[in-house]
């Protein structure tokens, strides 16, 4: 699994909030002014549902969600942890 695997899905989800604006990988999502108060919960639900992972309390840091690259890295890290746990069980 490489980080590049998740970005298209992440960008497709985010596109609904950004209209014509094209997000770059490192652009701060929360600084754009495009998202509303529901967005954080929608983002958490999306990441959990799309990539079959559970976002834990420890993951809830702005640094894990504020850019496409950060979300991608979080998903990669969480999926790797799930995969490692499955191998050991």
């Amino acid at each position: 699994m490489t980080t590049a695997d998740h970005k298209p899905q992440i960008l497709a989800f985010l596109a609904q909030f950004f209209g014509e604006h094209r997000l770059t990988d490192d652009e701060d999502i929360f600084a754009t002014g495009f998202v509303n108060s529901l967005f954080i919960m929608q983002l958490v639900l999306f990441v959990e549902g799309e990539f079959d992972i559970t976002v834990d309390d420890d993951d809830l840091e702005m640094a894990n969600f504020n850019t496409v690259r950060a979300i991608d890295a979080l998903v990669t890290r969480k999926r790797a942890a799930v995969g490692a746990a499955a191998q050991h069980s």
Binding site: L38, I40, M41, V44, D57, D58, L60, E61, M62
Partner: peptide, 17 residues
Amino acid sequence: LGRPGFGLAAVAASALE
């Protein structure tokens, strides 16, 4: 409970939902 700042937004928003 949860983490301050960004984490709080998720705690409060999900409970309010």
